[in-house]
Amino acid sequence: MKKILFGLLLVSGLLASQLGMAAADLEINTPAISALQNSMQNRHGQLASFYTSGAIGLTKDGLIAVKDASAVPLKDRQSLNALVAAENADRNKLYKEIAAANAHPEWEAEIRSTFAQRWVQKAQSGWYYQDASGWVKR
């Protein structure tokens, strides 16, 4: 029994050391990433009510999209579109910057899909997100 336990320990130790490299934190503290984070955080104050009303939702590719603009008064639809466009520009830059900051520009697509999942996971209930079948309420 002890032997088996020891063996398992050894193996897990081996694995941990293997994974040690991969488990290291990703670099996200660059000025470009903070600038984007800041800009998105400021914008979120304006976007939050649009998520709640279902006017916008989270897409499969880590962006946001107008889901139902009719949930928004006419006069706000133009700014809604502008906000969505600006948010998506920032998100696209963010994924690219994170990949670049970690010296792996080819990771952009995987970072994007990781984010896509996490945005949805962390979304408040009532917000909409897109899956293979279309818009789904969380």
Binding site: A69, L74, R77
Partner: peptide
């Protein structure tokens, strides 16, 4: 008037 996506609307 309003289209489905709400991108063209008149009130």
């Amino acid at each position: 008037y309003g289209d489905e996506a709400g991108l063209h609307a008149i009130e």
